[in-house]
Computed example of a mutant assay.
Amino acid sequence: MQLLSDRCRVPPRKICSGSLTLGKKHLLSIPLRCGYIPFRPPQTDLISRFKEQLHKYRKSSYDIEGCDVGKTFFAEIYTPECWLFRTHIDFMVRAFWNKCGSHLASCNIVVLDSLLTQLLSAQYCSFVQACSPSTFVWHPLLASCVEGTLGDRSEKTGWLKDVHTVYTPMNWGNRHWVCLVISLDTWHIDILDPLLTETSDVKVSSFMAPLVRMLPHLIMSACEPDDIEHVDSTFFSYSRLDGLAQNTRGGDCGAYVIKFIEMHCHGYEANHLSHFSNLMVDNFRMEFALDVYKDFIGKLRVQ
């Protein structure tokens, strides 16, 4: 039988010309890829208008597509060292996909929110206790993730048929965020961890067990027979990448993870993700808040 790793690799990602120079102390030439600019400080006047509109808002909460979030929701996204919960992270992922999803889908990439890892972890005990993985009853939203039918996305994102690489954030123990890069070609998961010292190898193994054991069976259950001809139930492997920027001041791991997702799925390698200054983190947290606000609330009013 042909091994999964012997399958054809994904075509090289499209790269546009251009470059970006960062900082005075850390000069790093970063190519601009398909119009994506990884570090662009938001305009001062835009930030001022944004904060003014948030301050003038009189209701106690915002309704974002049926999800009720507190009045401080956007301030929590842009405030340095403020912990980001699943609701923050998932709307940040959705805003990013709305902006770049068409291009990423054309490169056989999909970016999912934390629902995938959350549901796999929640069903893990039942999966382990099941008589046979082939008869396990999967949560319907897990099947939708693999089939590419979750939500109202117009892009084709079925695993193995349309998509070869899956990006998703994962929460470890309700205290730390990491980014997972799931390769459907090599059956391997790269973990982009913004604070390696936070989690021991033993803990990592425990957190990753639901994915490495369940994903093969979920894929075989949800994908079309023609797409899984060379797939078997071999566990996924995983490894944590070294050399990435580390969230040493604390509280920013969720923001780091979204930036890791943005840059890595546009083809940036570890050397481009090796250093985020506090100012850079503050700026891209503000950018995330602005993107979510503009996507789900409306345009900022010009004075």
Rank of each mutant, 00 (worst) to 15 (best):
L84T: 01
F85A: 11
R86A: 13
T87N: 05
T87D: 07
I89K: 02
D90H: 07
F91T: 05
F91G: 04
F91Q: 04
F91R: 02
M92I: 05
M92Y: 00
M92T: 00
M92Q: 01
M92L: 03
R94W: 11
R94F: 10
R94Q: 14
A95G: 00
W97V: 06
W97K: 00
N98I: 09
K99H: 12
S102T: 14
H103D: 11
C107N: 11
C107G: 14
C107L: 10
N108R: 10
N108E: 14
N108A: 10
N108D: 13
V110D: 04
V110K: 02
V110M: 05
V111L: 11
V111W: 04
L112E: 13
L112S: 09
L112Y: 07
L112D: 07
D113F: 05
S114Q: 05
S114A: 13
L115Q: 13
L115S: 12
L115M: 12
L115F: 10
L116A: 09
L116G: 06
L116W: 07
T117S: 11
T117K: 01
L120W: 01
Y124K: 00
C125I: 12
S126H: 13
F127N: 00
V128L: 12
V128H: 11
Q129I: 14
Q129C: 15
A130T: 15
C131M: 07
S132D: 15
T135N: 07
T135Q: 09
V137T: 12
V137S: 14
W138S: 02
H139S: 08
P140M: 11
P140N: 09
P140I: 09
L141H: 08
L141A: 12
L142S: 05
L142P: 04
L142F: 06
S144V: 09
C145F: 07
C145H: 07
V146C: 02
E147H: 02
E147Y: 01
E147I: 05
T149G: 04
L150W: 02
L150E: 02
L150D: 00
L150C: 03
G151H: 04
D152V: 15
R153D: 15
R153M: 15
S154F: 14
E155D: 11
E155K: 00
E155R: 02
E155V: 10
K156P: 06
G158D: 08
W159I: 08
L160W: 12
L160V: 14
K161Y: 09
D162I: 12
D162E: 15
D162Y: 14
V166T: 02
Y167T: 02
Y167P: 01
T168M: 06
T168C: 13
P169V: 04
N171R: 00
N171W: 00
N171G: 04
